[in-house]
Simulated assay, not measured.
Amino acid sequence: MFTGIVQGVAHVVAVTERPGLRSFELAFPAGFDEGLEIGASVSVDGVCLTVTERKDGHRACFDVMQQSLGLTTLAALREGSPINVERAAKDGAEIGGHPLSGHVDGQGTVLAIRKPENNHVLRIGLPPELMRYVFAKGYIAVNGCSLTAAEVNKREGWLEVWLIPETLRMTTFADKREGDRLNIEIERQTQVFVDTVRDAIDERLGPLLPALQALLAERGVNLDDLARPPQIK
């Protein structure tokens, strides 16, 4: 498990193609890899990877299967690419963000970037199958970083996250540009809540569901809004 609090930026040193997978050698910031052992888990841009080899100079190697390469942004990594990294959380660790599994659900796209004073705003587009789980003030993991969705537009399929200077300093977000792809992991409790409510609605309404959806659409509402989890104040 991870906390979603990125601990630094690593860089790709080498990429090696192997049958059925791709191997990455990463260089970590000083101190990040202290006590890191073979078999340990590291979040790499939000993807949980296993250390397969340790090397001198704060370096380690990881293997990534084709399935993970197809689902995540890791397939686009090249020598020199920067990535967000976090060590696996230890028992009793403070959860400064929200619990993450490191199992990416899909990808989003940077649609626009705004830079108000002392802030940095990313507008991120998501596919419908992920957008249904995103609500204003709810958690979402973007490239392994626990963030809060400040604004959400389900009709247009985007959310906005606001990044403070400290987040920009500790992550790769300052270097992102429009069109860049991002790894997305949705918040699991929200997923369970939304899916449970939608399944209950489907089961009870059956043939009436299309009519309900049309009625809600006339009022600018959809089933995902009805399935919105309660806000904790």
Results as ranks from 00 to 15, higher is better:
2 F>D: 04
4 G>A: 09
4 G>D: 09
6 V>L: 03
6 V>W: 00
6 V>F: 01
6 V>I: 11
7 Q>T: 05
9 V>Y: 04
9 V>K: 12
9 V>R: 12
11 H>Y: 05
11 H>D: 11
13 V>D: 14
14 A>H: 14
14 A>S: 15
15 V>S: 06
18 R>A: 11
20 G>N: 07
21 L>H: 06
25 E>H: 11
26 L>R: 10
28 F>P: 12
29 P>E: 01
29 P>R: 00
30 A>E: 14
33 D>L: 04
33 D>I: 03
35 G>W: 00
36 L>K: 08
36 L>P: 06
37 E>P: 02
38 I>N: 05
39 G>Q: 01
43 S>K: 03
45 D>A: 15
45 D>R: 12
49 L>I: 03
51 V>F: 03
53 E>L: 03
57 G>K: 11
57 G>H: 06
58 H>Y: 03
58 H>I: 00
59 R>D: 01
59 R>F: 00
60 A>L: 00
62 F>N: 06
64 V>S: 02
65 M>A: 08
65 M>G: 02
66 Q>L: 02
72 T>P: 11
73 T>A: 13
76 A>S: 15
76 A>E: 15
79 E>C: 12
79 E>D: 14
80 G>T: 10
80 G>C: 07
80 G>M: 09
87 R>C: 01
89 A>M: 11
89 A>F: 00
90 K>A: 05
93 A>I: 01
96 G>R: 04
96 G>I: 00
100 L>E: 10
101 S>C: 07
102 G>N: 13
103 H>M: 08
106 G>F: 02
107 Q>G: 04
107 Q>F: 00
109 T>L: 10
109 T>A: 06
109 T>E: 14
110 V>N: 12
111 L>N: 09
115 K>V: 08
119 N>L: 15
119 N>Q: 15
119 N>D: 15
124 I>G: 13
131 M>H: 11
131 M>D: 11
132 R>T: 11
133 Y>G: 08
135 F>N: 09
138 G>H: 12
140 I>V: 15
142 V>N: 13
142 V>E: 12
146 S>L: 02
150 A>C: 14
151 E>L: 12
153 N>E: 08
155 R>S: 10
156 E>C: 04
156 E>V: 05
158 W>H: 08
158 W>I: 00
158 W>K: 06
158 W>T: 02
160 E>T: 15
163 L>I: 02
174 A>R: 14
176 K>L: 15
177 R>W: 04
179 G>R: 08
181 R>P: 05
181 R>S: 14
181 R>M: 03
181 R>Y: 01
182 L>M: 15
183 N>K: 07
186 I>D: 09
186 I>Q: 13
186 I>L: 15
187 E>C: 07
187 E>R: 10
188 R>K: 09
189 Q>H: 11
191 Q>C: 12
193 F>Q: 06
196 T>A: 13
200 A>W: 01
200 A>Y: 03
203 E>L: 10
203 E>D: 07
203 E>I: 00
205 L>Y: 01
205 L>G: 05
206 G>L: 03
206 G>V: 02
207 P>C: 09
208 L>C: 05
211 A>T: 12
212 L>G: 06
212 L>A: 07
213 Q>P: 05
214 A>W: 04
214 A>P: 09
215 L>V: 02
216 L>P: 07
219 R>K: 15
222 N>V: 01
222 N>W: 00
225 D>A: 08
227 A>P: 10
228 R>H: 02
230 P>F: 01
230 P>Y: 04
231 Q>K: 14
231 Q>Y: 07
231 Q>S: 13
233 K>P: 10
233 K>Q: 15
